[in-house]
Amino acid sequence: MLELHNVYKTFNPGTVNEKRALNGIDLTLNEGDFVTVIGSNGAGKSTVLNAIAGVWPIDSGSIVIDGQDVTALPEHKRAKFLGRVFQDPMNGTAATMQIQENLALAKRRGKSRTLMPGITRREQEEYRELLRDLGLGLEDRMTSKVGLLSGGQRQALTLLMATLQKPKVLLLDEHTAALDPKTAETVLNTTDAVIEVNHLTAFMVTHNMKDAIAHGNRLIMMNEGKIIFDVAGEEKAHLTMKELLDKFAEISGSSIQSDKTLLA
């Protein structure tokens, strides 16, 4: 479903701020894979995700989604394959537009935008149903501006928007990191449900090791722009926190003491 071949990316090349962010990433996601991605700050987790989304062009390598090489496609053209939820709840929605208008924008992802009405009555009914399923009471506030919603509500709405058109891959960029623990759990449960119901292929970057172990069928650990550990299936299911920390120390060779705080 998603293939990355030998992807490299260096930021600010030739300057004092030069940073090798991606150092030869090879990765294949099968259909239905739900991968969680962990690693310390600066390991390249979010960078991989942005490379897939096409936020900027990569230096070398190729990216293939559902058999189509998208390496040269700009961000807005790749959007038809991808659903995205960002770390900052402000980022995934248009605050000054209505809830239903945001949904209508997402409904048209990957389609050309014409002079037909931006939202139809039939859509409104559809959105009302979907919002009711979300269980946040948003179905009665469809014409409210999204800026009035809480962070958790906005992330749940963004999740719904990301899956309104079934994406080939769902990209989640630490999408619960900015929420309080209780809201984060609710949003994560919604995430699980959405992925399962729609049989999505998903790529979830997280700071939280527990979440990485508890969710998904596959786990990837990154360090210095490389994938250093990739575990799936039964082995992933029985993975413990301690094993993961030991693994990190063993493979990366860096001190577990210094990184423990970042990973926990």
Partner: peptide
């Protein structure tokens, strides 16, 4: 009328949040 169409809405989204707009496939 124009800013209520699909195209008009996408222009409003472009101004409101260009990151979100691009993620929704809008050519900002």
């Amino acid at each position: 009328w124009f800013f209520g169409t699909e195209l008009g809405c996408s222009i409003r989204a472009t101004g409101a949040n260009p990151n979100m707009a691009r993620a929704q496939g809008i050519n900002t």
